[in-house]
Computed example of a mutant assay.
Amino acid sequence: MTILATEALTKRYPRVTALDGLTVSVGAGVTGLVGANGAGKSTLIKILLGLVPASEGSARVLGLDPATQGQEIRRSVGYMPEHDCLPPDQSATEFVVHMARMSGLPRTTARERAADTLRHVGLQEERYRPIGGYSTGMKQRVKLAQALVHDPKVIFLDEPTNGLDPQGRDEMLRLVHRIGTEFGISVLVCSHLLGELERICDHVIVIDAGRLLRSSAIGELTQASQVISVEVEEGLEKLAARLTETGETVAVEGRSLTVQVRADETYDLLRDAVVDLDLNLVRLEQRHARIEDVFR
């Protein structure tokens, strides 16, 4: 099932081209949209929501055209913006109920949905306090709740971990993963933090300067490489020298040694070198590629 698709999508501003002939499609599940700041991620979301017109090309969201059917798209899509846009004098409950009503839910249903959604994102009694007194993590949860309250088919999350500490990022990522797996809602999550997307996404789209670099399943991007990472208690330099003498390609990276696998005999040579030098092996593992390798 195709959630959204673009064809030669271009957006030009007077001094910059935010999107440059972007052609890509997104299926169900959790999809990561990754790129450096200024790569065009936020512009793409605004076009898909019908908030900003494209200069050229076309787009479809749930089969609808953002250029002419933006209102219908926004009824079926949840959006968590990057910037802080919450009213400080309202409580989370009041705000999320209001957003539910804006999406067309009756008053009673809106209050029930708001209570359920705020509970899902981890806001209990705090939901009655004014938002102005919330921490950054609590505000991010409110923004996530308002994106979910009308039971959308897909949600767009723009930098959902922005401003959070490591624990807050982990909690937010777990929430996003639950939405895509347990709630059955497709997710497009934008981030410039590559490691985060590797943890939660089924598919990743990489863009740079508004152009598509790659669109692949996460498994294809993080598949095992032909490099072994080795760590020993002492004698790393001796091990590197011994392997180099046997014709292996090695490199010291901090406390680890990387070895390029050229044939099955590389493993045998590594084992024999560790034994001959009487070294204590701490770690031996095959490296996996990372999303950041695409940028390199």
Rank of each mutant, 00 (worst) to 15 (best):
P160W: 08
R287G: 00
D278I: 00
H83S: 11
L193H: 11
R214H: 07
S186R: 10
R178Y: 02
V154G: 05
L197R: 06
M1A: 13
R199T: 15
S256M: 02
L105P: 10
V176G: 04
G27M: 05
D158I: 03
G122E: 05
A241Q: 09
A8H: 14
T249G: 00
G35F: 01
A217P: 07
E171P: 10
D278F: 00
T244W: 02
E182T: 10
L157M: 14
T161N: 13
G78C: 02
R255L: 12
L269I: 00
L86V: 04
V275L: 01
A18P: 08
E171H: 13
I45A: 13
G38K: 11
S55V: 02
H288P: 11
G27V: 04
I291P: 10
A100E: 05
A67E: 14
C190Q: 03
D170Q: 14
H120G: 01
L277T: 03
Y13P: 12
D65A: 09
Y128G: 06
G122L: 05
L118H: 06
V97C: 06
R75N: 01
E159S: 03
L44N: 11
V30G: 12
V252G: 11
T136E: 05
A92T: 09
R178V: 05
S91T: 14
R107G: 02
R287P: 00
V176H: 10
L9C: 13
I179G: 11
L123G: 02
T246H: 04
A8I: 01
G180S: 15
P106N: 08
G254M: 09
A100S: 06
T249S: 12
A92W: 08
L270Q: 00
V52P: 09
Q140K: 14
A67Q: 13
Q140D: 03
V77E: 03
D65P: 07
D170H: 14
E292A: 13
V275F: 00
A5V: 08
I185E: 07
R169H: 04
Q223A: 15
G180M: 14
V259H: 00
A28R: 14
A100N: 07
A147N: 09
V275Q: 00
V230K: 05
E292N: 11
A28Y: 03
P88S: 08
H288N: 15
A110R: 08
T258H: 13
T181Y: 03
A251P: 05
M1Y: 06
